[in-house]
């Protein structure tokens, strides 16, 4: 135990462990993918690799207005909520990391409280409030609660990132002739970019996956998001099983998440601040 074991045996052991974790996580996903390519007749045959391949399920979901509309809702709502939450969170986190203002601890505490609050207990009050305000079953009706619950997450992740950025850089920028806003925009923001993108991914996933608010605060296709739309899928007839269609839809809605992560992953360069200061 004296030193870290780096022998070939250790490599195999760690490799095996990694494999187990990856398989454990991926098998359900692959299973869903496999189901989505099966025909109705072979759905329940228990084969991992479909005996008959078909794209019917995909054709079905994209032929219904229901799914396409929900997809648009999901993308729109998640993107808007993410954008607003990240912008607000960036500003709040910057203030928390850099400034000493009265009530700072309280603010941090309250935002933590929001994150800890069980969402399910807020569903009925939110339902009532939104109906009174006319927000029920609208995009803002979902965007607002998403922002509320995503903000604590955003503030926490981002303030950790801001704290890592040496304060001297900001002072240097000011000495170099930058205004406060320029110092933030040209020096601090580029360095905080990895943090901002990480946060954006987390917030986006949170909004994208949400089912509870989406099912409680919507009632029509106007603002229903994909996770909810999925649960309303029915087969062609009352007696037909929609499993294939649901599986296909599940695969489709994973794609934006994968794209989102891949797109931003390039921006998440760790150690971007290295070389700024020696300390």
């Amino acid at each position: 135990m004296a030193s870290l074991d780096t022998g070939a045996a250790a490599k195999w052991r760690w490799g095996l462990l990694d494999l187990v974790v990856v398989v454990f996580a991926l098998v359900p996903v692959l299973w869903i993918a496999s189901l989505s390519f099966k025909t109705t007749a072979t759905l329940t045959d228990g084969n991992f690799i479909p005996r008959e391949w078909t794209l019917d399920n995909y054709r079905t979901i994209f032929s219904t207005d229901q799914f396409v509309r929900a997809l648009i809702n999901s993308i729109g709502i998640a993107l808007i909520a993410t954008a607003i939450a990240v912008v607000l969170g960036t500003m709040a986190a910057y203030a928390i990391a850099r400034l000493d203002f009265p009530g700072k601890k309280l603010l941090v505490g309250v935002s933590l409280l929001i994150a800890m609050f069980p969402q399910v207990s807020l569903v009925s009050p939110l339902f009532e409030i939104e109906r009174k305000l006319g927000l029920f079953d609208t995009w803002p009706g979902l965007i607002l609660p998403y922002i509320t619950f995503a903000l604590p997450l955003a503030i926490y992740t981002l303030s950790a990132f801001f704290k890592q950025i040496p304060w001297d850089l900001e002072k240097a920028a000011k000495m170099d002739g930058a205004t406060q806003a320029e110092a933030f925009r040209k020096v601090i923001a580029p360095l905080a970019a990895p943090g901002v993108f990480t946060t954006a991914i987390l917030v986006f996933i949170f909004c994208w996956n949400d089912f509870l608010f989406a099912i409680s605060l919507t009632s029509t296709e106007r603002s229903r998001t994909v996770p909810v739309a999925l649960s309303f899928f029915t087969g062609a007839s009352q007696f037909e099983d929609p499993t294939g269609a649901i599986a296909a839809a599940a695969v489709v809605i994973t794609i934006p998440i994968i794209l989102f992560v891949l797109f931003f992953q390039r921006r998440i360069v760790s150690g971007l601040t290295s070389g700024a200061v020696k300390g």
Binding site: D168, L169, A172, L272, T273
Partner: peptide, 11 residues
């Protein structure tokens, strides 16, 4: 100003 930490912009 020259800072003790140099405060170079790493990006």
């Amino acid at each position: 100003m020259v800072f003790q930490s140099y405060a170079l912009y790493p990006n």
